[in-house]
């Protein structure tokens, strides 16, 4: 029992690891702050493309979404960071993470936005257009607000997934939280820093998960 406490819940080691892990948390949050808005915008663009009347735009959008949903994000990230240099394209760890997660997140956001857009009855568009609103005005003021509201729990779930996904950035030595915790673990031969990082993820994401449940109940009622 004591050995388990020593190995996983060593307060002393956690305290020592804390500054580095918190610095890693800062990087995790920075990645999220860049990648989530970018992915959401990219996803919205791809979703609009996938419901476009223009066949070329529609097919391109669907191909994009299919490709990056099928490609494992770890494979994508390693390819961008370690594969592209063979073509002379050398990206910093942060740029590689941003690009890889942008492509991956856009594809997932696109599917959610697409479902949201399709959930808005066509009568809404007809009503708006009958008052002289343009297609763009109709999208901004009528269709999109309802689409987002209808898929809000799924959008937030995707945000949770992305926060967890950022730990993949450790494979390209970007100093986010898992990378920091792993570093301390290897220096101390003790798993407590990993438990610490896990605890911080839990504290960070649990409120968001409660919020999602709240929205899901509200939509169901």
């Amino acid at each position: 029992m004591d050995a388990i406490l020593q190995q996983f819940f060593n307060i002393e080691i956690m305290a020592k690891a804390m500054p580095l892990v918190l610095k890693g948390l800062g990087m995790t949050l920075l990645i999220c702050a860049v990648v989530i808005p970018l992915g959401a915008l990219g996803g919205l663009a791809a979703a609009l493309g996938s419901v476009s009347h223009n066949r070329l735009i529609r097919w391109s959008a669907i191909a994009f979404v299919d490709l990056f949903r099928a490609l494992p994000p770890l494979v994508l990230l390693i390819f961008i960071y370690a594969g592209l240099p063979f073509a002379g394209i050398r990206l910093s760890p942060f740029a590689a993470v941003t690009l890889g997660f942008f492509l991956n997140n856009s594809a997932y956001f696109a599917e959610i936005f697409r479902a949201g857009l399709l959930s808005v009855p066509v009568g809404q568009t007809e009503a708006a257009r009958s008052t002289g609103m343009t297609a763009t005005q109709t999208l901004i003021w009528v269709t999109l607000p309802q689409a987002v509201r209808n898929v809000l729990p799924d959008l937030l779930s995707n945000v949770v997934e992305i926060v967890k996904l950022t730990s993949l950035a450790s494979v390209v030595s970007l100093g986010e939280m898992l990378h920091a915790a792993g570093l301390v673990r290897s220096l101390t031969y003790n798993a407590s820093p990993l438990v610490l990082a896990g605890g911080i993820y839990l504290l960070l994401l649990w409120p968001l998960i409660r919020l999602i449940s709240h929205f899901e109940r509200r939509i169901a009622s």
Binding site: P121, G123, A127, A128, V142
Partner: peptide
Amino acid sequence: MVFQSFNLYPH
């Protein structure tokens, strides 16, 4: 235009 199903904006 007035529609059979009203088509008010619910939001």
